[in-house]
Write a protein that binds this DNA or RNA. Structure first.
Lengths: 218, 218
DNA sequence: AGATGTGAATGAGTTCACAGCT
DNA sequence: AGCTGTGAACTCATTCACATCT
């Protein structure tokens, strides 16, 4: 593989995930081949955008025919790095951290939570799902031993920055930040925010005008 | 208020939420006035973009001086509809639904979960946080009585569409969908997806090339 | 004929740079 | 002098329309 991954837009990338999901659904229905037009019709996507998105990474279809589902799915999975297992650690085992550990969507996926950590001695040692909460001090060893590269940051806002820095120091290479904070983030660690309140505030804004509206995207 | 809210980009809107958060932080530090340049410097924002974003809604600053924090915060809150209480219902009280109900970030905010519902009789009746899980059949009455306009959809993927339609029928006006599904959504209901796996797959992609990278945005 | 892959055209979003106010 | 508010320039993203291949 050899694409300057820094040059691919997150928008494109997130759509690839959506495409993949749609394709798998069709595959599970026994379908083996589809055109961009039919795919778009089925899932309200843009056929042109589907083709343009793929075009960044090579040729995937057969002119005059369409796309072979098995082939396309496999190539998209490789493209997104879903052909290898990703070990993740959860930092902060409050309500959110626990929900993440128990999240059934990870079963049968290539994403796996290998440890949940917390600083609070009252939480350390608890059994959550199949994991025992580990003390935060052991972050470095755990990350190293488990080969974890992804960290899910689920601590309270005031301590998020400090926890983040510990994660970076421990060798974590990508972070999903659930804390409602603008992290001062390390340049070599891919850091993405998932912020519930920002989404709610967007809904709140649109609730003010009682006209129809659709965001779409993601 | 009178802006065609349909014409405001979610990008702008989400940044307004970020600005608001940053401004509150400064306010809590006793600061009363700030320039766009200083704000940008403090929180790695773009000063020009900050001004442009605000410009869509009127004039907020004083030329030669900057912005009055109290005034700006208050106006942004009104703008986003954060001056009124938002009642929310959670549909699907599995792990995620429970975490949402217990989420401490709602305390002291204008967002409040007034009910959690589930179809599973084994879950109905459970006490989660300060709520007792209600049977899904009562959705309509609960929405009506509580004046809930926002719904948090936290059911398994296969039943998400059907649950969504029930929510729309019950009078919900805006939905945050946590299920990994492309909903066929109703035109008059503002529907937004929050998708953990899509975010992880984005991280996965970038983990493949070990160069530095930053997404930024939201 | 039919669907892909792609340059060209359009549209959206961001940054620049400065006029205008305090 | 300093900072806002904003048209103009630019960059990024999406859509169109067609040449190209099966």
């Amino acid at each position: 593989m050899s694409f300057a991954s820094g040059s691919v837009s997150p928008l494109t990338l997130n759509r690839l995930s959506v495409y993949l999901r749609c394709l798998r659904r069709l595959q599970s229905q026994g379908i083996e081949r589809i055109s961009s037009k039919d795919l778009a019709g089925e899932f309200r996507l843009s056929a042109a955008q589907f083709r343009k998105d793929l075009a960044q990474f090579g040729e995937f279809g057969i002119r005059g025919i369409g796309y072979d589902l098995n082939d396309l799915i496999e190539r998209l999975e490789r493209l997104l790095g879903l052909d290898i297992a990703h070990h993740m650690v959860v930092v902060g085992m409050g309500n959110l951290g626990r929900a993440l550990v128990r999240y059934p969507g990870f079963n049968g996926s290539n994403f796996q939570i290998v440890a949940g950590l917390d600083v609070d001695p009252a939480i350390v040692g608890l059994e959550i799902g199949s994991l025992k909460v580990q003390p935060f001090e052991q972050l470095h060893q755990i990350v190293e031993r488990a080969g974890a590269r992804i960290g899910l940051l689920a601590v309270p806002a005031p301590v998020a920055q400090s926890a983040y820095e510990n994660m970076v120091a421990a060798g974590i290479r990508a972070v999903l930040n659930f804390a409602p904070v603008r992290l001062h983030h390390h340049a070599t660690v891919y850091t993405k925010n998932v912020d519930l309140k920002i989404n709610l505030e967007e809904l709140s804004f649109f609730l003010q005008s009682p006209d129809q509206s659709q965001p779409e995207a993601l």
